[in-house]
Amino acid sequence: MPNLITQQAQKKLWEQWQKSFSSEVAEEFLQTLLTLMQFAFVVNPEYRQNIKYFEGRYQFCSKDGQVAIAAIFHDGRMEVMEKKINQANIAITFRDGKTLLNFILAPRQDILGSMLRHDVVTEGNLNYLYKFGFMAKQLQLMMPQLSQ
């Protein structure tokens, strides 16, 4: 029974995520991604390896100031909150949802192009972003399995 519930929840999140790809609303895409990530860390021990000893503070903001979401990795756990945080390792300010999607998750990630066009502006340690990009991409590769 718990398995069935987990599977249903995963399926719903997966569908939501698929939908958010076509959405212009950055918050929707980002929230879904972060929620999925949290979920995957809980249910998948292999994926959880990524954050076993990882300490990292991420700040995502939209250029218009409407979106401010933080993701904090600490003590093998991931926490997501809708606010600005202090001492982020990396702050990512994006023009809109599409540019954020291209930046971290598109099949052909366009990190450099996004930065050159100033669609996305970062401040801080880019290595944290590279790690985040890997975890997001791994999640993307896992999702078809989860949704079955």
Partner: peptide
């Protein structure tokens, strides 16, 4: 080298 991180699973097959 860490710029490779996001594509560890895809660098072998990129276009």
């Amino acid at each position: 080298a860490l710029t490779l991180w996001p594509e560890l699973d895809t660098v072998s097959t990129r276009a």
